[in-house]
Design a protein around this nucleic acid. Structure first.
Lengths: 248, 248
DNA sequence: GCAAAAGTGTTAACTGTACACCCATGA
DNA sequence: TCATGGGTGTACAGTTAACACTTTTGC
């Protein structure tokens, strides 16, 4: 980043990143804990986000901000929505924080939100810049967030679910080798409801998006699960053919 | 609008409106013709859009801009996407126009796009402000537009089609009384492909979204069509219940 | 042998799709 | 009486949804 970028900050436009993470248990979300120690106030948790520069486009800004605050990079971010309420940064509990990090804390800021879904175990967020502490929190337990970030989260979750209905889940979301149970749990976590095991497996088999590997789990105290990998070619083919009903 | 609003313009953020119109034939789009007379250059057609004010939110801005440029109001606008490429306003053919209407024609502007679908015959756009002439153009015939407006159009069209898959078409899109053939043509126009007449009617009947009126077309040189109206209650009920598969 | 998760088939209801003819009207 | 678009039913294929037991492993 050029040294004079500070002068090039666009004080009216920010990006916010909704990073969903999956640990084979619950759907989680990556948040900045603004006042470590002073726990259990939902308003002290915020999405990683910041102002954009004038010499970068929105996608670049989202990737840069995510990297600067969390260290995460090479994550596919999908644009979600724009938020521009006049009062979105006017909450009392957010004012002090804004004054500490912004040149013009009173300026109305419009934010463009992005979302992604990653495998929690494959990424290790490292707090930096004003993100003094980062935490993964289960989405289902979040009741509110700083600014209008709770709205942004819910919007992104809607988008993620709708996307799942018209596209199969991407390849970046699971380890290279995974079991069908893991994939099953992933779908259930995103959709927030149970899916019948047999029906799920049948559907996956029919779509031909996963390939059975000649390898099993080791050392588990139950019947070991077979590993699978994604069938990248078929995924591309399905997308290109306009197949858009994965029926979940 | 307050007189001092001119000082309150946000030079970095605009809204653009993709107004789809349906005339029971083709899906059309409302465009500003920038140089009337100098026809057939697609780059002389632009979406109605303008900078926002700092004392209005994005939805308000979209509605205001649409009204100022076209006279259209009380149209439900749905947010589509944000566009922020660095070069989106840098095309040579757009420079002169920008210089004539903007204080800071060189500034990078991020735009938030909105879309809607209206019944062409129920709205009568009146050009005003810098929109010297407005035209409806068939979407299928558009090959390019000013700025990045062709991208914005295609994005909005995608959104409209996807929306149709998870929600029934809204009530603002057809006259109060309409025939099933009109509704049928509307769906075909949006989706850009033919739908079987019998299957379409069966599906509509099952969804229970339209109510047969005791009234027929008059003076048509063929069997007169029955009029229908929307069943607003059932529409609301379906949306609330989370029914989201209209299967087209 | 027991606890724990993997893996597997069948049936019934529903949904999508393909397809062709008669009807009511104005001219 | 003809041209025009309105309106209707059926059968097949495919998809969804509900449901319970056996298998393999570590301990």
């Amino acid at each position: 980043m050029p040294a004079n970028n500070q002068n090039n900050l666009n004080n009216g436009i920010s990006v916010d990143c909704v990073i969903f993470g999956f640990d084979f248990e619950k759907l989680q979300i990556l948040l900045i804990e603004r006042e470590p120690g002073k726990k259990d106030n939902p308003l002290d948790y915020a999405l990683p986000g910041d102002l954009i520069y004038n010499d970068e486009n929105l996608d670049q800004a989202a990737n840069r901000v995510l990297k600067e605050l969390t260290g995460l990079e090479n994550i596919y971010l999908e644009q979600s929505a724009a938020f521009g309420s006049l009062d979105r940064t006017q909450r009392e509990s957010d004012r002090a924080w804004l004054e500490s990090v912004r040149d013009q804390p009173d300026l109305r800021v419009i934010t463009i939100s992005y979302y992604s879904l990653v495998n929690i175990n494959a990424f290790d967020p490292k707090p930096s810049s004003f993100a003094s502490k980062l935490v993964w929190k289960p989405v289902a337990e979040i009741e509110d967030l700083a600014f209008d970030h709770f709205d942004i989260l819910n919007q992104a979750l809607d988008n993620l679910r709708n996307r799942l209905k018209i596209r199969p889940i991407g390849f970046n979301l699971l380890p290279e080798k995974f079991t069908l149970s893991q994939l099953h749990k992933l779908y259930e976590a995103i959709l927030g409801r149970e899916l019948d095991k047999r029906n799920f497996r049948r559907k996956m088999a029919k779509l031909d998006l996963v390939v059975r590997l000649d390898e099993k789990q080791q050392g588990v105290p139950h019947k070991p699960s077979n590993f699978y990998k994604f069938n990248t070619e078929n995924y591309q083919k399905l997308i290109e053919e306009g197949y858009d009903n994965f029926g979940f």
